[in-house]
Design a protein around this nucleic acid. Structure first.
Lengths: 236, 236
DNA sequence: CGGTGACGTGTCGCATGCCACTCTCGCCGA
DNA sequence: TCGGCGAGAGTGGCATGCGACACGTCACCG
């Protein structure tokens, strides 16, 4: 007999497949693809493909062009700036909040994820590394108790994953990345909310600087993310 | 010559119609509706309705329940907390940024929108009032130069609009709301970025407090949004 | 030789068909 | 009377049909 088990819906499978294809670059940024073609390649009909693409379009990864196809959007320098401005506004604050709310299970999960990152870095497994990197951040964000915030940041990561995965190592080794997360983890374990938030800010800012510099390709960059930091309240 | 008339797509019309129906409460929170029924009422086929609902589902306004229908989600106290935590993290910072980037056209638009708010408050036109309230915020957010940020906040507003429109006046008059925006506008015109950001924070915080207190209905509330404010950097 | 307009191909957007599943409600037996 | 159950109606998810439009091609004309 066939697996009576409830497999995830076709739509969900198509969605993750398309997302992965965009991230991996299998679907080239800037190129046009037809729903029919994608549906055939995935072995399903046009409907679930179209519906998945609608979701990706809402997220800003693709854009429908009437009677022409669906275009995979390329992330410009400005896009990177937008994404990291948002991450800098959200992640440090969420981290600060998370430290005071983290329960035992979440802390354990955070440690476990970090251990996986270390292991992946040791075996030079870039893909697994970034997978757990993402999970590390997600655990912290969820611990902050704001699902929308976690979802937003998680969505933002997709925007830069494609550029980040294969090239970030040019300027920062996997070990460096692990080290930055270790600092965060240690401060979280110490219950130092402000410190952990600051470490997170530094980590995200560092990542932003590397990716933006890389994207600019040596040209002088006109990107200012400093406005995302600092007191909102008047300094008395 | 201008293109004669670009009829907005059926999908877009359906989307705004459904969004309006949810916000106005015409589609009751917690209730189930079928795509077929909605499509018939709107005079279109199921496809564009379903696609619009998918977008609303991604935004968190509705949820598909297989073989049962689509449920309009109700906003809980925790939802309000999430939404306003995000707004407090984003809007003051964006305002601060906007003050330094605002061009003449945007400033003019901000003044114009504020004037509309005043007029609407005078004639006690609640609907128009909130329409321009939303626009006021959107202009500022867009001036910050971050389209994603503007889009996120704009989406968040939908979550509370339903509760806010018809009941906020119980504790805060339209004139009060105008006054809060006037403070922001004045500080923006003065070029006082930090002050405008602080005014925005106070405004959003005030709105949050009122809506949350109202939602709680007198019961003691356990909502803490203070973590969204304050220095992320260590205070030296 | 250059410009132009008609035609064919390919595409999305919308409508519709089909299927498995869920829930309701009335019937039947104890 | 009451409880279980089964048939039917209704639903979302997926597949497919269909029309209008964009764009490339190419023959034709100036």
């Amino acid at each position: 007999m066939k697996p009576l088990r409830e497999t995830t819906s076709v739509n969900a499978q198509v969605l993750s497949a398309l997302r992965a294809a965009v991230i991996s670059g299998e679907l080239a940024p800037g190129s046009l693809y037809s729903v029919q073609t994608l549906a055939t390649q995935l072995g399903v009909s046009r409907t679930p493909v179209r519906e998945a693409l609608i979701k990706l379009a809402q997220q800003g990864m693709v854009r429908f062009e009437r009677n022409r196809g669906v275009r995979v959007l390329l992330t410009s320098l400005h896009d990177l700036e937008e994404v990291f401005a948002l991450r800098l506004l959200l992640e440090p604050a969420a981290t600060r909040r998370a430290v005071d709310r983290l329960d035992a299970a979440q802390l354990k999960e955070l440690r476990r994820t970090f251990a996986h990152m270390e292991k992946a870095a040791k075996s030079d497994d870039e893909f697994t590394m970034f997978e757990h990197d993402r999970r590390f951040h997600r655990v912290l964000l969820e611990a902050a108790g704001n699902a929308r915030l976690a979802g937003i940041v998680d969505g933002l990561r997709d925007m830069v994953l494609r550029r980040g995965v294969s090239t970030a190592r040019e300027s920062r080794s996997l070990d460096d990345i692990v080290a930055e997360h270790r600092v965060i983890l240690d401060l979280v374990e110490d219950g130092d909310a402000v410190g952990a938030a600051e470490a997170m800010r530094a980590h995200v800012e560092h990542t932003a600087a590397l990716l933006i510099a890389q994207e600019a390709g040596g040209e002088p960059v006109d990107v200012d993310l400093s406005w995302t930091t600092g007191a909102v309240m008047r300094t008395n």
